[in-house]
């Protein structure tokens, strides 16, 4: 078994590595999730603004709502790394 041959240094190093992978996944996957959500909202928002400029404030809000997902991912990543 691999675990039996693992020294303390190796274990610590792999812990570090897994942290980095976890942080990467946290940002990457949440980023994709945000992108998928904004993919639908963005064009609709642009269309609405083109029709009526006054909706800009409202559609900006609607567009950036999914951004919260990736920010959470980023926060989790930062907490993992530091």
């Amino acid at each position: 078994m691999v675990v039996e041959t693992m020294t303390l240094e190796v274990a610590q190093a792999s812990a570090e590595g897994f942290k980095a992978i976890g942080a990467g996944l946290a940002v990457g996957i949440t980023g994709m999730a945000t992108a998928i959500a904004q993919f639908a909202i963005g064009p609709a928002a642009v269309g609405a603004t083109a029709e009526n400029k006054e909706t800009f404030g409202l559609v900006l809000i609607l567009t950036v709502i999914p951004e919260t997902i990736v920010i959470f991912g980023l926060v989790v990543a930062l907490l993992l790394l530091f």
């Binding site: 919260t68 920010i71 959470f72 980023l74 926060v75 930062l78």
Partner: peptide
Amino acid sequence: SHVLSYARLAAVGL
């Protein structure tokens, strides 16, 4: 979610 959203100030800056 709204309070944590302010964490972007730190995250985007970093």
